[in-house]
Each structure stands twice: as C-alpha cells, then as structure tokens.
Design a protein around this nucleic acid. Structure first.
Lengths: 349, 349
DNA sequence: TCGACAAGATTAATCGTTTAATCACGGTAA
DNA sequence: TTACCGTGATTAAACGATTAATCTTGTCGA
C-alpha cells in the first residue's frame, strides 16, 4: 500500500504551483525553461530532499540503471577485489550492481544470468567459469577473462604477466623452473604459463605441474612432492596463483627447504595476505580498477547507444591491461653449492 | 523509447481476449477465477515466456524486492562466503542483492547506504566496520557482526568458537598460549579472545598479541617476533583469523620451528586456502549459510509485516549460530624435551 | 415471478516519471 | 490591425502491474 519513500515530483510541483512536467524538465535540464524557475525548482527539490523513484523511471524509460555481476565461483580469492572495483566504477556512472552467484556450476551460471535478466538489468558483467561458452543473453554483455578468450571484453594481460615473472627469475639466474598450474583448460592459466615459457632462455628448463591432474592421481590435498623436484635440480617454483604459490611455499618450508635461500617461489594476483606472510611473496598484480573501469565503460556505451535491442558481447578498445610485478622476499638468486655441479640430472654415485 | 523486455500482461490478455486484470489475477492466484481460465492463462504465459516487469510491479506495490548488502571492506577474506550465502538465501526468497562497498572507510559506509536507499532497496544487510555506530536508515536493517554488538541481528557465536579452540589446545596439553588478535576494538575479535580465555584452566597462561599495536611500534609488516615467545615457553599460537594464523605459521616455519611438532597454531574462519597449506591449518568455521538465512528471514519478516515505515535494526530469534572446530594438522601435543623442565620461566644457568 | 446472492469476469484508478504535443502570450514584421 | 513566431510553460499519454470497485450472469429460494 502506502510506501512513499519521499517527496515526489508531484509534491514539488504543487508546492511551487507548477506542473510536474516543468519540474521534471528543470531537474533533468531538458526542455525550455527560464533560468529563474529552474533555480527555484532545484532549490525546492534540495530542500525537500527529493530523490527520483527508480522504479517509475525504469518503467517509463525501460532502463533500470542496474548491471548484473556474475562471478564464477566464490572460491576465487580475487572476487573481493573485482567486486569492489566494479561496484566503484558502476556507482560512479550512476549504476548499481546486482550480484548473482553461480556456485561453481555451469548450469547455475545460466540460472544466475536468468535471475539477473528477470530483474531487468541493463547489462551483464561476467567472469566466466572455466571453459564456459557464454550464451546470448539478449543484453549487452562484458566478459572479463583473458585476452585469448573468445569475445572477451577486457582483461589483464596474463601473458605479459607471465613474461614479467620469467624475466625476473631468469635475471636472477634461474634456469630450471617448475611452473605450477591448476587446470590446463583455464585460459587465464594457459596465458600465464605461455607467457612464462615464452621468456625462457635457450637451455632453460620449465616443466608444468598441473595440480588437478596430480590430485586426480594422488588424492585431493596430497603433497605436491616438490622436494623431489628440488632434488632434481629445480631452483624456482612459479605458480599461476598466489594460492598455489602459498601451497608450494608452505610445503617447502615444512620440508625444511629455505625460501628464498634454497629455492624461489612466485605467485600471481597479489592477494591480500601475500605481503603478510614470511617471507613475503613475490607476485604479479593486475590492475583491477582499470579493468573494471574499461569493462563498465564498454558496457555502458553499448547500453546507451540507442538501439536497446543491442545484444551479445561488447568490446573495449583497450582490451588488455598490463600487469605489474611485485618483487618481495620469496625470490633470490639460485642456490649455488660449493661444488658447482649440484646433482643436476643424474645421480652422483 | 522502445524497450520491451518481453511479453506483458497486456499481450497475454489480448491474445486470450480477456482483461489484464484477469491475467494478473490468474497468475498471482488472487481474486475469483474459474480453474479452466486460470489454466489457459498460465499456459499462455508460459508459452510466451512471460516475466513480470519488476519496475512496474515495484512502482505499483512500493517494494523493489531487492536488498542491499553493505560490506565493511574488501580486505575481509570472508566476503566471498558471506556474499554467496546471502545471495543464495535472498534469491531463494525471490529477492535480489545489490552490493555497496564502503572501501574501508566509515564515511563511505554512509555513502554506500545512501546509494542503496536511492535505489529503493526494501531492506539492508550490513556487516559493520569496526566500531561503527549504525545510523537509522529509514528501512529495515539486519546487522551481522557479533552477539555483543548492540542491535546485532544474527551472527556466529564467536565466544563459543573461542572456547572450542581453547578446549582443543588444553586437551592436547597446552598451558602457555599466545592469542593473536589484530585490533582490540573489534567485537568479533574480542569475543573470540574472550571465549578462549574463559576456557583457560587454572595455572594456564594466555597473553594477547595485538598485531596493530605491534605494527604501530615496529612498522607495518614487521615480524611478530614469535620465536622469542616460543623461547619464553609458549607452545601454541591461537589467532583470531586464519590470516593471522598464516602469518604466524610462515614466520615460525621460516625460523625453522616445526609446526606442529614444536608449537601448535590455530586460526578462525576456515578460509579457502586453510586446508591446502602444509601443514593444513586447524581452524574454526562459522555456518555462513545459516547466518545468511536467519538474517534474510528476519529482514524479510520486518519488510513483509505490513507497516512499510518499519525502521531500524531487526532481530532474529536465534541470534547466534554455533561455530565448529575443524581440526587439521597444525595442532598437536606440546613439545616435551627429555628434561621435563624446558626453560619455563627463568633462564637456567 | 421477483429478488438476492454468488461466482466470474471487467473497469478504471493508481504508482511517479518522461516526453511528445499543445497552448498562451508578448513582440515583431507586413 | 493582423498574421506569425519564439519562448516558456502545460497537458496528457504512455510505461506495466495491482487492486478495489463494479458489472454481468446464472441459480436458487420464497
């Protein structure tokens, strides 16, 4: 029933004895109005603390000024950063962010999108789940994943980030490096690993350890057997995420292998705790704020360009944002034993 | 201009040659309708893929069926879990969740709330920032913090969680424990520490290490000097968050102190990576799903009980949800040297 | 046979904004 | 004097759903 949030255009109009249309025009700056009356109306609106009814506006204009944000799954520790950056960029542009969680399942991702559509969002931002093909949602859509994802709108330049890591390790003198990934079907992870590989100098060795494969064999949460890698000559572990870097770091520390004195470790994403651990983790940070801004800009452009039937993924001009290396304490030159030849490959008798 | 999201009541009505009111009644189950016609209308609606316009409904009924979620700041690693649980509980009840980030500042928390109100949310869920006094927002409000926060609606029973930790450590044989907190003005942290202390047996020792105070003196990110605590006889470190537990764990490991062989470490919140590190972290988990459900229930009750002017914080019957201890690998009986008296207090010459 | 009543459907008002179309009016040119 | 024009404001029609009030029929009892 009664649920007036506050003053309406009508109230302002009758208080000033003008018509609602006039008030509407005065506040929106459209139509032809005398400066004097415009000012009187604006003052009155401020005085009464007028805020337009989004519902009425949405009904009339057909735009809700709300965007939907679909996140892959909550396990993603980047969620907070992304959500925050997007909310900020959106609210600056006068848009709200409605969240929808896909609970990690691809089927639910579709449900999540439908829920958003039923709520009349003007557009959707999505960080897709591994290997998902995005369906046409009948609304402008911005995809944040990796540059090699088809239809990606904007993302960090994961490949270049990988190069940064490898260049850093190589310049320290590392030549035998283990790359730690989780799932080879992730575009992001593949880009990062590809970037790292691309900067491996001739004669360098880089093997990939895919955690999910390892766990399929050895069981969930099983040790990664990094010590054996160290014994085989690896001097650095470069993970595609701080999460995995942390797993590696603690496993090494627990085995009594000093980091970075004996081996180096690097991560990706510069998560909240990365600087807090001992030793502080060397990582690669993505410019979430820029990414969010670009994604929102591209989306809003698609939305605000007249034909409201616009559908499908949109594209930003700058579609990939450089990452930056954050060097901290887990990286150092490789350990060199007194005897230069430290069991590099074959077992010394 | 033109922006029909899809079929409207009107279209269904004219397709079936009945009035819109009839269609509305048929779909909502109100009014007096023949079963036959109701079915025909429902079928037609399904056939056309009708979804009601939220904007129109909101305008007419005065309820947007959207709730606002205000989170303290993004650094909170619990954000994902909370957001997910809340979104799930809300969407089950037919509500959407609009997020607002306060970027860690108290002033912005107010801004965030205002943005939500301007978007006509029906109610607000808030996880308040340290020591914030919640202003009256003119809308039903559910506060999720700690039971000792005034006006709290529902939360985990942090005190009881603390008791769980201490009981566990004590049963293992620990008597000299360092409690690690961040900021003494946090209700949550105080509850957890209070709970731990309350289960300390006679003769036991528990000192609190407040990280923020420590950093004010020694600088941000400075080592916590835990080794000295160990030398002074401490056999366990109980942190109020997995974040701090991780910090302690890596610092100890880095110093060559084996966990749990030499000292035990516990955390709180059971964050995503807690089970993945080596050794896996013993922690206390809160039942986020129940908390979210209770908070939403309380909020919806306030919203749906007729007087839409209802304002201020609401209260759930069950206002505190028990936590559960997750014992993993960082806790074990205290280290006992051959000589039973291991430099407990005084220095042996 | 008439009135009352219930069931089943319709009418019309309303929510608050936007916006195209219209109107009133004073000034200017013919 | 009259036609015309521009300025500044108003009118009124949407947008789509909800809902109280009303209308139409058919049935049943008196």
């Amino acid at each position: 029933m009664a649920s007036r949030s506050g003053p309406t255009l009508n109230m302002i109009a009758s208080a000033l004895d003008v018509s609602v249309a006039t008030v509407s025009n005065a506040l929106s700056g459209k139509g032809r109005l005398s400066a004097e009356l415009t000012k009187r109306i604006r003052d009155k609106a401020d005085e009464l603390g007028y805020t337009p009814s989004q519902a009425a506006r949405a009904l009339r204009t057909g735009r809700s000024r709300v965007l939907g944000l679909v996140l892959p799954d909550i396990a993603n520790p980047l969620f907070p950063q992304i959500a925050q950056a997007i909310e900020y960029a959106a609210s600056t542009a006068g848009y709200g962010i409605l969240i929808a969680d896909s609970r990690g399942s691809v089927a639910m991702q579709t449900d999540a999108i439908n829920r958003l559509i039923e709520r009349d969002v003007d557009g959707i931002l999505i960080v897709p789940r591994l290997g998902t093909r995005i369906v046409d949602v009948g609304r402008p859509l911005a995809v944040i994943d990796s540059p090699s994802t088809p239809n990606s709108t904007v993302s960090a330049d994961h490949w270049q980030g990988g190069q940064l890591v490898m260049e850093h390790l190589v310049s320290l003198g590392h030549r035998h490096i283990v790359l730690i990934g989780n799932n080879p079907s992730s575009n992001v992870q593949n880009d990062r690993i590809g970037g790292m590989r691309s900067r491996l100098p001739p004669g360098g060795r880089a093997q990939v350890l895919w955690i999910e494969q390892h766990e399929d064999i050895c069981g969930k949460g099983a040790p990664l057997q990094l010590v054996e890698r160290v014994n085989a000559g690896a001097t650095a572990f470069a993970a595609v995420s701080d999460l995995h870097a942390l797993r590696a770091l603690t496993e090494l520390q627990n085995a009594g292998i000093p980091v970075p004195a004996r081996v180096s470790v690097t991560g990706f994403d510069d998560l909240a705790w990365s600087a807090m651990i001992t030793p502080a983790l060397t990582s690669v940070r993505m410019d979430v704020a820029s990414i969010a801004r670009l994604a929102i800009e591209a989306l809003l452009q698609a939305i605000e360009s007249d034909p409201p039937g616009t559908t499908g993924a949109v594209t930003a001009e700058t579609s990939s944002v450089p990452m930056t290396l954050v060097v901290r304490q887990t990286t150092a030159p490789p350990f060199v034993p007194i005897n230069n030849q430290n069991a590099p490959e074959g077992e010394p008798a």
